[in-house]
Design a protein around this nucleic acid. Structure first.
Lengths: 150, 150
DNA sequence: GTTCCTGCAAAGAGTTTGCAGTTCT
DNA sequence: AGAACTGCAAACTCTTTGCAGGAAC
């Protein structure tokens, strides 16, 4: 373990999991990303910064990070295709709203998700790990275009 | 359009979409199902009642029904594999809680989802079509087993 | 030094597509 | 009759796996 490692890397290391060049690379890419990445994005972005990584390693690492609770797997309603998207789990959880017409994804923060989680815990006894909320909608721009047609 | 067609079939027909033998069959299976079906379930269940339907038709029909807003596509956190699951859209919406250990899926009804939708509509102007909430958790049984190990 | 990880290549699974023939309205 | 739908088969994409060599601790 090297000095001054960034957040997710420390977390992984503290769980007794080896930090390899490839894992550092992927964690960097995921932490720096503003978007929701999928596996082939990661291969591509790695190449762009001159580092090579195999698809298989990407998938294996994403699985590992998901199991360890460091990243979250999203489908984003498959508006963009069948791949899975991943994002770092941050303090403030947020939900995703996708426009079914233009495919745009918007993030939205709300405390109400925590309320749902509380209600579930109390009433069912389930111990919640994470909650994924994905909303399928029509964005304001696309609503305008729909009205023009009519 | 035949007489006494069931709910989803009427809805489809009213949209001007042809009712074929295969579509009736799939709608019947989806309406009667208590579980969340995926494509190959539908092929299998059709065969069990002596009707043949091609995979391609199943996928095309599921796409159609999803686009028309008659069924909802779920991933159920992929606890059960990479397939998509489908269920009829019913009046009372519900969310899915999956146990990451045993894979059990529980349905849960709450009014709080409607609150989230209201908040989103007001603050973003998005017109919501549907909201998918999938919770990853540990069920009470599996929590017990975890404690035994420790 | 031991254990775990990676790359490569091949396989696997779910899903989509082109086309000719059939069915619906 | 005309438009839309289906079955078949092949193709496609995303993802997983076995194995030999290499890296982390």
């Amino acid at each position: 373990m090297q000095k001054n490692e960034s957040g997710l890397k420390v977390q992984l290391s503290e769980k007794g999991i080896r930090l390899t060049r490839q894992r550092r690379l992927l964690l960097d890419l995921i932490e720096e990303a503003s978007d929701h990445l999928h596996a082939s994005d990661l291969v591509k972005f790695a190449l762009e910064r001159g580092e090579k990584i195999d698809r298989a390693t990407v998938y294996r690492t994403l699985g590992l990070l998901k199991d360890q609770g460091l990243i979250e797997e999203l489908d984003l309603l498959h508006l963009d295709g069948p791949e899975h998207h991943y994002e770092a789990i941050t303090r403030k959880s947020h939900i995703h709203i996708g426009c079914t017409k233009c495919g745009k994804i918007m993030e939205f923060e709300t405390d109400l998700v925590a309320n749902i989680e509380d209600e579930i815990s109390c009433e069912t006894g389930f111990l919640i790990r994470s909650t994924r909320v994905e909303v399928s909608a029509l964005c304001p721009d696309c609503q305008g275009k729909e009205r023009e047609k009519a």
